[in-house]
């Protein structure tokens, strides 16, 4: 699997605070190939951003701690689950070189993501000079190029963030993220804070640039429309767990996990005439106090006795389509035994 630029394996991340331990990410695995786009969907607090920050090595310290698991960037592990300060520091040194260069991130709110007291051009040039041995003049030149690339006139290099609109600021954030041509780009709800009319433009821009640079894109969103628009694969996160993972076709044509189904039911649809949108009853489990049951059990429309006290594993229902639900198990097991028998 050498074309996999990013591989997340059994990642477990906790926030250890004075009030207790929040199990933010529980055993999440996925992979991403060059040029591929993976959408991570889930509601607020599901752990999507934590996954992104873990990959970036930007977990808030000292609370955020990787308990186990690996994140492989080009086959090399980049997270440190040891608590040893020495190892943590070594990891931080390594990550500093990778961040902004091999792996970058676009944050949710462009309004506050830019330093208000530095001209935007300089903020782009900064990342260029950090990772490339180039002169100041050259950095200015390339930063101007990047600005033009994201659709902002180069003469606005010296302008400050407050002189730009939200959409333009996000373009600058994208320019910063892509300036060093990273292998992996993580976009954390890049359009949420923008006007609807701007959202499409920004998405198009990202998609276009991604294809141009052949970057792998991890798109974190709660908007299934965005996923349908630009993603190849889609993962659904619930309470820190990947509850369903598959190609966009898998998820959209054959949503199998009750949560995924509920998400789709909550969408307004042009071809169905509904008076009220369905909402998912109840609240997500508290990550400080996760039940031993299937984490979705309380809100699940299809729960059964098996859901009590046992957390279901991921089942592969069809090649590349994984679902975490006891309901799926009998079908999968039957299929597996059929296959075994057929083999015999």
């Amino acid at each position: 699997m050498s074309d996999k630029v990013l591989e997340v394996k059994n990642l477990i991340v906790h926030y250890e605070t004075e009030d207790g331990v929040a199990e933010a990410v529980n055993d999440v695995s996925f992979s991403l190939s060059a040029g591929e786009t993976l959408g991570l969907v889930g509601e607020t607090g599901a752990g999507k951003t934590t996954i992104a920050l873990t990959i970036m090595g930007l977990l808030p310290k000292p609370a955020g701690q990787v308990i186990s698991g690996e994140v492989l960037l080009n086959g090399k592990n980049i997270v440190e689950s040891s608590r040893s300060r020495f190892k943590q520091r070594a990891n931080e040194r390594m990550m500093r070189k990778l961040r902004g260069d091999d792996i970058s991130m676009i944050f949710q709110d462009p309004m506050s993501a830019l330093n208000p007291v530095t001209p935007v051009g300089e903020q782009i040039a900064e990342v260029l000079r950090l990772h490339n041995k180039i002169s100041k003049a050259e950095a200015v030149l390339r930063a101007t190029e990047m600005m033009e690339l994201v659709g902002i006139p180069g003469e606005r290099y010296k302008n400050y963030p407050h002189e730009f609109s939200g959409g333009m600021k996000q373009r600058i954030v994208i320019a910063i993220a892509l300036a060093c041509n990273p292998r992996v780009l993580i976009a954390d709800e890049p359009t949420t804070a923008l006007d609807v009319t701007i959202q499409a433009q920004v998405l198009q821009l990202m998609n276009g640039l991604k294809q141009k640079f052949n970057t792998a894109l991890l798109m974190i969103t709660h908007d299934l429309g965005v996923v349908a628009d630009i993603c190849d694969k889609c993962g659904v996160i619930y309470a820190g767990q990947m509850v369903e993972l598959g190609s966009v076709e898998h998820i959209f044509n054959n949503p199998s996990h009750p949560y995924t189904k509920a998400l789709f039911n909550a969408l307004p649809s042009l071809d169905k005439d509904v008076e009220r949108l369905e909402s998912i009853q109840g609240l997500m489990s508290d990550p400080m106090n996760l039940p031993p049951d299937c984490t979705f059990r309380e809100r699940c429309a299809e729960k059964c006795e098996k859901c009590v006290n046992t957390d279901p594993p991921l089942f592969e229902t069809e090649p590349g389509h994984y679902v975490r639900c006891h309901r799926i198990a009998p079908a999968v097991e039957a299929e597996a035994s059929n296959a075994k028998e057929a083999a015999k």
Partner: peptide, 9 residues
């Protein structure tokens, strides 16, 4: 956070 994400020291 943006500055950190750039790989700045």
């Amino acid at each position: 956070r943006t500055a950190r994400a750039k790989g700045q020291t």
